[in-house]
């Protein structure tokens, strides 16, 4: 990993919000709830997240908070497939259902799955 030359000084990141978008907080919340109930083991989560970070944070330029949460989301999907028997097809189908729900719900009305 070529992370020796950070693109910005580390302390400057302190000025930034921990979460840029709500889904980033939700990924961690889901993961920690699953760890708390024992559906996912804490060390499985940290090992898998570490591997996913290695994959995404390949150089200083890609060492971003966005990539961190992207890695966390990829990790959660991978562990749910491996540990909870939730297939990628089921995830993709549910995502398509939500996409359709958003696309077909008029502005101002609550978006719900049919």
């Amino acid at each position: 990993m070529q992370a020796d030359t950070p693109i910005i000084p580390l302390p400057r990141l302190d000025e930034e919000p921990t979460f840029n978008e709500a889904w980033q907080a939700q990924v961690l919340a889901i993961a920690q709830n699953l760890i708390a109930t024992g559906a996912i083991a804490a060390d499985d989560w940290s090992n898998a997240l570490g591997a996913a970070l290695c994959e995404l944070q390949v150089d200083a330029k890609s060492d971003t908070v966005e990539n961190y949460y992207q890695a966390a989301l990829n990790t959660l999907e991978t562990l749910l497939q491996a540990n909870c028997g939730i297939s990628k097809d089921v995830m993709d189908q549910c995502k398509s259902d939500w996409t359709r729900a958003y696309e077909t719900t008029p502005h101002g009305q609550p978006v719900k799955l049919q």
Binding site: A22, Q70, L73, V90, K95, W98
Partner: peptide, 15 residues
């Protein structure tokens, strides 16, 4: 919502 936001929404729904 963005692609990752939809993926998280899907995961939460399933879980």
């Amino acid at each position: 919502p963005s692609d990752p936001a939809l993926r998280v929404k899907a995961l939460e729904t399933i879980l």
